[in-house]
Design a binder for these strands. Structure first.
Length: 491
RNA sequence: CGGGGUGUAGCGCAGUUGGCUAGCGUACCUGCUUUGGGAGCAGGGGGUCCCUGGUUCGAGUCCAGGUACCCCGACCA
């Protein structure tokens, strides 16, 4: 056995790392905090990208690309924004290297110092709003609905594969609107897009909510989010959509003339999801045997493994397997027929389970004789023998079932891990032992929120959009509260 | 940035109080046998023992300094 996976019970972090590395999704790189996304992992990202991009286009957005570098002065134009990002910016100070005088290697040429230092974008609001100033003059220029697929850099103190890397890939939407109402509507619309994507494609149930002032995006009036729950009971913010008000319009002096010939500041939103989604995908569904990928995002949906003793048998199986492969592919299903002779069937079974391929079809002499195949589901481990008849339909149906099943499983787990508490003792106990979300009253002050974080390490993940009014007392201070909020320890 | 850990073959690791040609598993190459859950046997190739300096007849091993990465916190998507 060359690829043992650490079990979740033994060491959850190590389990996660094993899945990423041994599942062939990514590798550590020579650069601190930066990872290499390997082809198998990147193909998941490509599927995420393609799907979301279609959803963005369908909601009226177009793609553009803005510079990787941002003049240092831009960042400081919005006070909260610089405050939030300054501590984690990579800075370009020089533009040239030269041979070291002692002949050993190369050094930064001190004569090549930049007039104004450039930062590597941690997010693009500033460079984009600086550009929007030139693009927007009239109400006729609005709304401006732009998305960009890009890499950004945030110099995090501690990194984790996919969940928090110094450089990561993401998309960031930046829209400009004539009215507050329209901008708020856009913010909510994109939150909805993210939630739909998470649930229908990633099979991860999410809670839609908004952030408290403490957790808000630097420079936003309101930050909305989708929160998911991982198998270790920790919450993971899977996507955010920000209502930026007129903050960036004011910082970059972006005004437009209304129909009534009045000059007004533009209203803004921004929204993003990143390669962190892949981390969520891994942790939400997988088990101790390896990855479990939702069929809709799995790079390989079906793998066919031949079992044979003789060349004649292999030839027969090749023929039948190719036929099956073609008929599945005709339905848009991605199939790999693995007749590589260097590995044995048992090895392949374990390997594709590790990689999370939803369906495995095994074909041996027995099957050829009986006109059957053996089909194994990755999510449940169940194996059944099916006849060739209507195989394509059966597989299509099974893929749908798997997609629904892993969503339901994640949903059941999530729902079991939302606990309502009304006493501090129970609150602490649930966070510590049961884990997951805790629904509790909070007095609405940042001070209380921070104290709770200090005592329990839990933060307010969000205030649910559909939270109904309910009178109660703050879990910590006993002060009056009008609705419950969701606490959890988070990634 | 604080705490802990690890750097020895592609990968995972062992290496005793300092001692001979640095070893094991796996992967790789060759051959034969195998193939319905990570195959077996035989043979073979592969090393800057993280770096620098020191102690010593002799350093993977001891000492000092450096460096890289991982894990747990603080910070964050």
């Amino acid at each position: 056995m060359s690829k043992e996976i650490t079990s979740r019970a033994q060491d959850y972090s190590q389990w996660y790392n094993d899945l990423v590395i041994k599942g062939g999704l990514a590798d550590y790189s020579a650069v601190r905090g930066c990872m290499v996304i390997k082809p198998y992992g990147y193909s998941i990202w490509e599927k995420i990208q393609r799907t979301l991009d279609d959803m963005f286009k369908a909601t009226g957005h177009v793609n553009a690309y803005f510079p990787l570098f941002i003049p240092k002065s831009f960042l400081s134009k919005e006070a909260a924004h610089v405050e939030g990002f300054a501590k984690e910016c990579a800075v370009v100070t020089h533009y040239r290297l030269k041979n070291s005088p002692d002949g050993k290697g190369i050094i930064v040429d001190p004569d090549a110092k930049l007039e104004e230092e450039l930062i590597v974008r941690p997010t693009s609001e500033t460079i984009i709003w600086n550009t929007y100033k030139d693009w927007i003059t009239s109400y006729r220029d609005l709304p401006l609905l732009i998305n960009q697929w890009a890499n950004v850099v945030r110099w995090e103190m501690r990194t984790r594969l996919f969940l928090r890397t110094a450089e990561f890939l993401w998309q960031e939407g930046h829209t400009a609107h004539a009215t507050k109402e329209e901008a708020v509507e856009e913010t909510m619309k994109m939150l909805g897009v993210y939630a739909d994507f998470a649930e229908q494609w990633m099979a991860i149930p999410v809670i839609k909510g908004y952030k408290t002032a403490n957790e808000r995006f630097a420079g936003a009036e309101d930050t909305y989010c989708i929160e998911a729950l991982m198998q270790d009971g920790k919450a993971l913010q899977a996507g955010t959509s920000h209502f930026l008000g007129q903050n960036f319009a004011k910082a970059f002096d972006v005004k437009f003339v209304t129909k009534e010939n009045k000059s007004e500041f533009v209203w803004a939103t921004s929204w993003g999801v990143s390669t962190r989604l892949i981390g969520a995908l891994i942790m939400a569904h997988s088990d101790d045997k390896g990855l479990i990928l939702p069929p809709k995002l799995a790079p390989i949906q079906v793998v066919i493994v031949p079992i044979y003793k003789t060349e004649e048998q292999l030839a027969t199986i090749n023929e039948k397997a190719t036929e099956i492969k073609k008929s599945l592919e005709a339905k848009g299903i991605s199939v790999k027929y693995d007749n590589d002779d260097k590995q044995k069937p048992g090895w392949k079974f374990a390997e594709y389970e590790m990689k999370g391929v939803p369906i495995r079809i095994a074909m041996g002499p027995r099957d050829i004789e009986n006109g059957t195949v053996e089909i194994a589901r990755r999510d449940t481990g169940e194996k059944h023998t099916y006849s060739f008849t209507d195989l394509t339909t059966k597989v299509e149906h099974l893929l749908e079932q798997i997609q629904l099943n892993i969503f339901q499983k994640a949903l059941d787990y999530r729902d079991e891990h939302i606990t309502r508490t009304d006493t501090w003792e129970e609150f602490v106990d649930v966070l510590e032992n049961k884990t997951g979300f805790v629904s509790a009253h909070w007095d609405g002050t940042s001070e209380t929120e921070l104290k709770i974080k200090e005592k329990t390490k839990a933060t307010i993940r969000c205030i649910e959009l559909n939270a109904h009014a309910e009178e109660g007392k703050c879990i910590l201070t006993g002060n009056p509260s009008h609705k419950r909020v969701l606490f959890a320890k988070a990634y």
